[in-house]
Design a protein around this nucleic acid. Structure first.
Lengths: 297, 297
DNA sequence: AAACACCATGGACTTTCACCAACTCCGAAT
DNA sequence: ATTCGGAGTTGGTGAAAGTCCATGGTGTTT
């Protein structure tokens, strides 16, 4: 009893004729006979009484018809739904993110996306880069937003925001023009804890211009971007922060950029996806909306 | 998208593995791959991400699975219902009947049958033999209960009650022993109208023993069995009635049989069905309960 | 009675189904 | 790094099913 047989049966039932059904379905009349015969054999009951010119459905056929029709309808609806599921963008997007993009970048993007896709709901999960990457690898997340690439054949990265780190502090720390790199040791530094992506990135850039981070005058180490920023606003020292995190403070004047000669600390954020998973449609739309070109790694 | 594909898909989905599904379904693993591939092609979407060792269902698969499962369940239920419809005797039986069997015979049979088949309801349609036979031929009835056969290759008769007609009247008409046939002309006769099956039958028998019905002393012609019987009870005359119709009166003594030498008016009733229709189960059960041996004509 | 309409049957052909064996791919263990 | 085993894919073959055409029976219509 497959759909083909049921389709033939319902057509015969509805039209009350093997021949008409064969024309409607564009298959030959003997084929109809054959299928009906098989169906009758499988159900071990007659479905139609053949009365010379006409046929009449039996009680079993009357029982079978509505339910058979219903099954066919369900199937057609299912088929359509699946085909059209590629048109309607809806559902939940769970996106993992490390601190900076999760706090300063994604909220805006999410709002923008939600404007044109009102049926999509978001859940942003903030954790550190390694944890997010791990979750993508383990299929706990379809995509994550992280500040560093981890080499793996199963991961696909896509640059989605070019940020930079800048040195900031109260006006009193600001000097005319750029400072020299060797002057950095004179500043009281506020630092993020070891393991912070921001700190690691900063230290690499400092080493790149010949400044040993170990020789900095670190007056405090704080556990979050927000606390470091607050301390800097209070004038406790200077610190290196993501430009994204201090945009408002720079505009207000509560913090000022301190430019260092020869130092530009670019820091890209990446969207990471598993190489082989097919994400649901809403993810594809979201990735595309932030400028997906497939991948870049 | 047929049931076979869906069955394979749901099994793969549930077990999370092509190989396990192949073992469960007793088909080879490459066949599974093939079917999944075809399904994916038809729906133009990936259903499983192949990740080396494991597979993971995509969003589309998650959408497809429950509905697919539901379709399969419905199909199985439908199949079972049809198979078991041959076990459960229920539904309505509409049976056509001519006057005598409809009034005196069927009610008892219906009650007897209903005792052992409480789920069956009855509708007894009383009309004359020709009308009932016509309705059976036109498929308006599955079966009828009539007092005469009509020759047609499309009709199947089955004797289901052997009745006889008897001459009855008040005690005053009764004589010692049987009367001779030529004495019949002395009795005041109550007759049914022309066209009555009972009358036609009686006349044939009278002619058979050399009594011309036209010479009978007919003192009244009445339109129904009940009215003739009532008139006979009142002593207006004698009449020929179905034994079925006067059983109670004979037992009470309000009517008495008048036996005529050499005259036995057997009258069979038949169950008539269309030769080629397959009646619903409850009809088969009913016909069998009244002693169906297939057919006898 | 002949023509017609309809379903059933039989034989030939095409497509699908299912299998096997060999292959690729990936991840884990040595 | 290499090997090893589980998993899915590919290609070729035989069997089964699906389909068609032409034809045969049967009841209805003219």
């Amino acid at each position: 009893m497959d759909f083909h047989q049921l389709r033939i049966f319902t057509t015969v039932f509805r039209l009350g004729s093997f021949t008409k059904a064969s024309k409607t379905l564009n298959i030959s009349q003997p084929t109809i006979s054959e299928h009906i015969k098989n169906l009758e054999k499988e159900l071990s009951c007659k479905l139609f009484d053949r009365l010379g010119r006409a046929i009449r459905p039996t009680a079993e056929a009357n029982l079978l018809y509505p339910r058979s029709q219903q099954l066919l309808d369900s199937l057609a609806r299912l088929h359509d739904d699946l085909i059209h599921s590629k048109t309607l963008i809806q559902g939940e997007i769970i996106i993992g993110a490390s601190t900076i993009p999760g706090t300063y970048l994604l909220p805006k993007m999410v709002v923008d996306f939600a404007k044109t896709n009102p049926l999509v709901t978001f859940q942003v999960l903030i954790d550190d880069t390694d944890k997010i990457t791990e979750m993508v690898l383990n299929h706990e997340l379809f995509c994550g937003c992280v500040g560093a690439k981890q080499h793996s054949p199963n991961l696909k990265y896509q640059t989605f925001y070019k940020d930079k780190l800048i040195l900031v502090g109260q006006r009193k720390f600001k000097q005319k023009g750029k400072i020299k790199s060797n002057q950095l040791n004179d500043f009281p530094f506020l630092m993020r804890e070891q393991g912070s992506g921001t700190r690691r990135c900063m230290e690499e850039y400092f080493i790149g211009i010949g400044v040993d981070p170990a020789h900095l005058k670190i007056i405090a180490t704080l556990g979050s971007t927000a606390s470091v920023k607050e301390a800097a606003i209070q004038g406790l020292g200077v610190t290196v922060l993501s430009q994204l995190a201090v945009e408002k403070e720079l505009a207000e004047g509560s913090l000022h950029p301190i430019e260092v000669a020869g130092l530009t600390m670019a820091r890209d954020f990446y969207l990471v996806k598993h190489n082989r998973r097919t994400p649901p449609l809403q993810y594809l739309a979201f990735c595309q909306s932030i400028g997906d070109s497939g991948d870049d790694s």
